[in-house]
Nucleic acid binder design. Sequence first.
DNA 1: CTATGTGAATTTATTCACAGCA
DNA 2: TGCTGTGAATAAATTCACATAG
Lengths: 203, 203
Amino acid sequence: MKYHRIPDETVRRLPVYLRGLLFLSDHKQNISSRNLADFISVNDSQIRKDFSYFGAFGTPGVGYDIRKLIRQIKKMLNLSVSHKAALVGAGNLGSAILAYPGFRMYGFDIAAAFDNDPKKIGREINNVRIEDISSLRTLERRKISLAIIAVPRDAAQQTADALVKAGVKGILNFSPLRITAPKKVKVITIDIAMELARLPYYI
Amino acid sequence: MKYHRIPDETVRRLPVYLRGLLFLSDHKQNISSRNLADFISVNDSQIRKDFSYFGAFGTPGVGYDIRKLIRQIKKMLNLSVSHKAALVGAGNLGSAILAYPGFRMYGFDIAAAFDNDPKKIGREINNVRIEDISSLRTLERRKISLAIIAVPRDAAQQTADALVKAGVKGILNFSPLRITAPKKVKVITIDIAMELARLPYYI
DNA sequence: CTATGTGAATTTATTCACAGCA
DNA sequence: TGCTGTGAATAAATTCACATAG
């Protein structure tokens, strides 16, 4: 295979493939691009092309070895090793995130949680103890380089700033606000209401 | 302006514009595509092209009237009238959604909430009373055609089925699962862990 | 002189279609 | 025969660049 930069859209789809394949790995050994395509509702040649960007693993006439494929996708996404993540904001949404069972399948470990409310500090949610937000600076020492922001909107930017200062490299932002960060820090924002706002257009 | 089908990518950006413009409308009267572009980090000609799909509102030399633009985008997204939405699943995530302040700015009103846990039924969260999930069928009568699924993964598909049966036209799905629904029902899925899974690739 | 609106050019992504392998 | 891997063809989205309006 020749060198290819992996298109952004492919990177966006890889976790989708991974999720489907992890599910399928309980039931099957191999799968064809066609069957996988049906399962996750995309085009089959799309799948083959996407996989071709990071090497060819399929067997003509048989399909792809699911476990091998999972390994390769994890490698591409840099998910082969488990990642520690910190949660900032232990309110409703933060608690929901701490309780969310889906992180483990991608190898994430929410290893720390922070809040500024004295009533919450010291408590435990899902075996994670809430720490004072002023101790964010310990993240670097603890080798935590991903963070999830679930604080109220007005605190979002200053939280992001503090996280950047603490050496965080990637941020998943749940506040309904544009957050600025140095280019070297990747920010992904999920604005729940904004997603909902797309629905009425289609109905 | 000639007829154009609005590209999907434009539809995806419209709520982003709307959010930014709503924020800016407190401070300014007009804005140029260039300034708006800087504000929300996109290309300025992208903005002009996007706006051109639904008509030309700008004044050369001046820019766009923010309030007029907000009105037009809302119209395009079918957000001019307020929409009622139902929440299914009043656990951690559901509670967070009920408390989320961002829906109002897009004209959403979470008018009903459902759960199957007798301990929760009858309680109120943020002035919304939790109803028994068996009364989903009342949605049609109550003119609620949008729903948010925040139930555990294993209950997601059956919840979706029940919602479709209750006449819901759009679903925002938070469960980490592919949900199938008739084509006429638009489903948008947000899988929190999957979004996070994209981060390590970029760092 | 500034900033829109839009064709044209370019870049990016998707889909086709088929040679070739197991 | 069944399915991969990939160039070639197509489609879609983005960006350029400029004539034109206020």
